[in-house]
Structure formats: C-alpha cells, structure tokens
Computed example of a mutant assay.
Amino acid sequence: MIAPSRLGRFADSVLVAMSGGVDSSLTAALLAGEGRPVIGVTMKTFCYSGVEGPSRTCCGLDGIADAKSVAAQLDMPHHVFDVEEDFTRDVIDDFVSEYAAGRTPIPCVRCNSFTKFRDLLRRADGLGCRWLATGHYARVVRPGAGRPELRRGADDRKDQTYFLWGIPRRALDRLLLPVGDLTKPQVRAEARRLGLDTADKPESFEICFVPDNDYAGVLRRYLPDDHPALSPGAIRLEDGSEAGRHPGYAHYTVGQRKGLPGGFAEPMFVLEIRPSSRDVVIGPRTSLARSRVVAGGVNWLADRPAAGERVGVRIRHGAPIVDADVLEATSTGFSLDLPTPQAAITPGQSAVLYRGDLVLGGGIIVSAGGPLASRVPGRS
C-alpha cells in the first residue's frame, strides 16, 4: 500500500482531471483515501460523431464512461465539461496550420498549455477547489519558502514533463501529482488492490483526433484540395537533384525514413521540408545530425538559464536528455549549442530544458540553426 504521507496533507478540496485511464483513476482514489473532498472532471474535447476510431483513447467516449465509472466507485461527484470550441481553436487549428507550414506539432503539448490547465484552473475556482490534481508522471516540489518547482517523474521511462513545459507557471502553486513518485507497474498494482475498474485498461498512444495515425486525412478535412501541403512536389537530394515525387509534404516529417525512394547505397531520411517550393529534401543518416537548436514561444517554469550555462535538453518525446550550452535565453526564446550533435531536430517539436531533474521551461523548435526567433506561428 502507498503511504498517504507521500501526498502531503491539505484540508482543502481537490479537482481531479480524470481521463478515464488508470493513472488519473488512481490519482482520484489516493486523494479520496486521504479523506479529502474530491471532485472529478472530464473534458469533452471535440465532436466524436464525425470521426471514426477515437472512442477508446484517453479523450474518447469510452474514456468519459470509464471516468464516470471510477468516480461512482469512489462515491465522488463527477462532471463532464465541453471544451470543444477551445480545443478546436487551440489544438486542431494549430495542428492543421503547423503541418500546412511544413512543421510537426505536438497536440498534447498544445492541449496542456492552452486548453486543459487553464480551463481546469477556472473550473476549480468555480467549484470552490483549492487544488488541482492530474495523473501525470511528474512531480511538484515545494522547497520551503521558494516557489513550487516542476521536476521529472521518478520513473524516467514514463516521465511526462516533456508535455507539461507550457502550462501556466501559476498552476504549480495549486498542482498535485500523486503518481509522479511511482512506476507504471506500481500504479497498476495499487489500482488492482483498490479494485478500480481501469486497473488493467490498455494505454492509449494515438492522438485523440487522429484515427489510425492518418494525419493527412485530418488535413484533408480542413484544407482545400489544392493546398500546397496536399499537392505533389519533388523529393530532392541535398545537391538539388530530383530523386522522386511525393503526394504532398504533409505526409513527411524530419527524420522520417518510410515512404522514400529506394535504390541508394544507404538508407535515406527526410532532412528538410520546404513549403514554398513543396520540396522534401532527403539524405543519409549522417546528414540528420545538428549541433544547434533554436526555439521560440518559450514558457519558463523556473528562472531562465544564463548564457554560457550548461543544461540538459530533450528534443523529442522518448529521446534522452543530452547536454546543451545556452547561447541565449530570453523571455521569448532560446538558442543552444549541442556538444554532441543530435539527429532529427524537428521544427514544431518541443525542446525542454532541465537542470538536473528540475524543469526550467521549454519552447517550440524553430530550426536547427539561424537567428533566435521571438515567436512561433500559431502561438501567442
């Protein structure tokens, strides 16, 4: 059994974001087991009637039903709030515009940064809740009189701080993350012990509004048929020669190998997407390596690092944290030098900075070099 002391002891009520998965279910159960007043909330993010396939995702209709079932088990109130309009504006519209511009966005970062946490804080206020809790694998540390800090989850394989760098810093003052000290097997074991309906529910990895990972299919619903992102273009080698044709650059992302022309002495990868000419540039793996990262649209969750400081950076989900030297860090962006060049630094993905396990903040990758960008299109 998990010791209640891990969660701290606060008398005030807690709003728990419940996706219908085991992590948020256990979060609610642990807090309710503390004797706290707990209210469950699930967000309905978009209209499911026009999209096939997402019902079993964390944000799908099954997720809503599972969240309601666990709330009933715990004898706690549960609300479903419709945030479709905000989600469409903040996440889906951004997804479409970023792919149309040749970048590769991360909808979950966008959702947490712009839709979920801001709305959850507002809902918490409306329901009279002092605290907000989620099932993310991350930790909030409150160091005495200092400001709360976001730190990596105890299980690095499940750490989700990569998706949380954009949340409002003020959210840390009210945020509880009960499963951040646990591993996934520990979470499932405790959920089974408590008899939660979601204890053995499979994890969902797909984007909730992208059935079958068909990104281009989503774009076709929102963009005109003749949009450049969905129009044929050239696949070129680094020297500019044409190696083949593609059906639309929205089908490709930096670092991709699948779907490229064959017949070369070594495997080829996407190196660059050029929306203005509709070219997709390919080359060998060695050409993917870059030693410079430029990011914009930054959000700092701690004091920003100084120029010359060595920090850690994660440039994509699941990638290791690697050393980086800060060239510049401002209120709007940062640029880094990587002592060990990294492959597939992809515009539109996140670059998250760490000092040890402390999350300093993050931004959206603009390029693997060039001048510091002050703003990322689509982010305000």
Rank of each mutant, 00 (worst) to 15 (best):
F163C: 06
R152G: 14
G144F: 02
L175H: 15
A133N: 07
R157H: 10
L177G: 01
G144P: 07
D125V: 05
W131D: 02
R147N: 07
C111N: 12
G126L: 07
R174S: 02
K158E: 15
T104R: 04
F114T: 13
T134N: 03
R169V: 02
L182G: 00
L121I: 08
A138L: 11
Q186C: 03
R193D: 05
R123M: 11
L164C: 06
A145C: 04
R147W: 03
I167G: 03
W165Q: 04
A191L: 07
F163Q: 06
C111A: 09
D173Y: 05
P185H: 06
L132I: 13
P185L: 14
R174P: 00
P143V: 09
G166D: 06
G135L: 12
G180Q: 11
R103N: 13
N112W: 02
A145S: 12
R188Y: 06
G144S: 05
L150E: 09
G128L: 12
K184W: 02
R170Y: 10
L175A: 03
R122Q: 09
R142L: 04
R170T: 10
R193L: 13
R170A: 15
P168L: 14
T115A: 04
L182I: 06
T104N: 10
R147C: 12
G102P: 07
A171S: 12
R188S: 11
G166W: 03
R142K: 14
L175T: 06
W131C: 02
H136Q: 07
G146R: 15
L127Q: 06
C111M: 05
R152D: 00
Q160P: 01
L182Y: 01
V141P: 04
A124M: 14
D159R: 07
R192F: 00
T161R: 09
V187W: 13
R130W: 04
A100Y: 05
S113F: 05
A154N: 13
D125P: 00
R157V: 06
L132F: 01
I167T: 00
K184E: 10
G153Q: 09
R157K: 12
N112Y: 08
R110I: 01
Y137C: 10
L182D: 00
